[in-house]
Deep mutational scan, measured.
Amino acid sequence: TYTFKVDNKDQAKKAAKWAKKLGLSFQIEKHGDTFKITVQ
């Protein structure tokens, strides 16, 4: 499981695209202005 934080929606979208490309499941949680992405 890999967790990282991004500062904006664009970065969150890029991370989601990357995870989908690799066939991984992911969750994006919004914490105020940051997004926490968990990829597994």
Score class of each variant (00 low, 15 high):
residue 9 K to L: 14
residue 11 Q to N: 05
residue 18 W to M: 05
residue 25 S to A: 10
residue 27 Q to A: 10
residue 27 Q to S: 13
residue 31 H to E: 15
residue 6 V to D: 01
residue 34 T to M: 13
residue 13 K to H: 08
residue 5 K to H: 15
residue 28 I to F: 04
residue 34 T to Q: 14
residue 13 K to A: 10
residue 26 F to D: 00
residue 20 K to D: 04
residue 39 V to R: 00
residue 20 K to H: 07
residue 17 K to I: 12
residue 9 K to I: 14
residue 39 V to E: 00
residue 2 Y to F: 12
residue 21 K to F: 07
residue 13 K to Q: 10
residue 17 K to V: 09
residue 7 D to P: 09
residue 28 I to D: 00
residue 2 Y to G: 02
residue 14 K to W: 11
residue 14 K to I: 09
residue 19 A to L: 15
residue 5 K to T: 15
residue 21 K to E: 07
residue 29 E to P: 00
residue 34 T to G: 15
residue 30 K to D: 06
residue 26 F to T: 04
residue 28 I to A: 04
residue 25 S to R: 11
residue 19 A to E: 01
residue 12 A to C: 15
residue 26 F to E: 00
residue 23 G to A: 03
residue 40 Q to F: 15
residue 12 A to W: 04
residue 22 L to F: 08
residue 6 V to T: 08
residue 19 A to F: 14
residue 31 H to L: 13
residue 1 T to R: 11
residue 15 A to G: 02
residue 27 Q to C: 14
residue 25 S to W: 11
residue 32 G to C: 06
residue 35 F to A: 01
residue 34 T to F: 14
residue 8 N to V: 02
residue 23 G to C: 05
residue 10 D to G: 11
residue 23 G to D: 03
residue 25 S to Y: 09
residue 11 Q to S: 09
residue 3 T to W: 13
residue 39 V to S: 01
residue 23 G to F: 04
residue 39 V to N: 00
residue 9 K to M: 14
residue 34 T to A: 13
residue 25 S to H: 10
residue 18 W to Q: 03
residue 23 G to K: 06
residue 6 V to Y: 06
residue 36 K to D: 05
residue 23 G to N: 07
residue 32 G to S: 04
residue 31 H to Y: 11
residue 15 A to N: 02
residue 9 K to Y: 14
residue 11 Q to R: 07
residue 22 L to D: 01
residue 29 E to I: 09
residue 35 F to W: 14
residue 31 H to G: 04
residue 18 W to H: 03
residue 8 N to R: 06
residue 10 D to Y: 15
residue 22 L to M: 12
residue 25 S to K: 12
residue 8 N to Q: 04
residue 24 L to E: 01
residue 29 E to M: 07
residue 13 K to I: 12
residue 29 E to S: 09
residue 22 L to I: 05
residue 15 A to C: 15
residue 11 Q to L: 10
residue 37 I to P: 00
residue 2 Y to T: 04
residue 30 K to E: 07
residue 40 Q to V: 11
residue 4 F to A: 02
residue 20 K to V: 07
residue 27 Q to T: 14
residue 23 G to S: 04
residue 37 I to F: 08
residue 27 Q to R: 13
residue 16 A to H: 05
residue 29 E to H: 07
residue 3 T to F: 09
residue 40 Q to T: 13
residue 20 K to M: 10
residue 22 L to K: 11
residue 35 F to R: 01
residue 36 K to S: 12
residue 25 S to D: 09
residue 31 H to A: 11
residue 12 A to Q: 02
residue 18 W to T: 03
residue 31 H to K: 08
residue 34 T to C: 14
residue 31 H to W: 11
residue 20 K to F: 08
residue 20 K to R: 11
residue 6 V to N: 01
residue 18 W to F: 04
residue 16 A to K: 11
residue 37 I to M: 04
residue 3 T to Q: 07
residue 15 A to Y: 15
residue 27 Q to H: 12
residue 33 D to V: 07
residue 11 Q to K: 11
residue 17 K to L: 12
residue 3 T to I: 11
residue 24 L to G: 01
residue 33 D to P: 08
residue 39 V to M: 06
residue 13 K to R: 13
residue 32 G to Q: 05
residue 17 K to R: 13
residue 3 T to M: 07
residue 32 G to H: 05
residue 1 T to Q: 10
residue 29 E to W: 07
residue 18 W to V: 04
residue 5 K to E: 15
residue 26 F to A: 06
residue 23 G to Y: 03
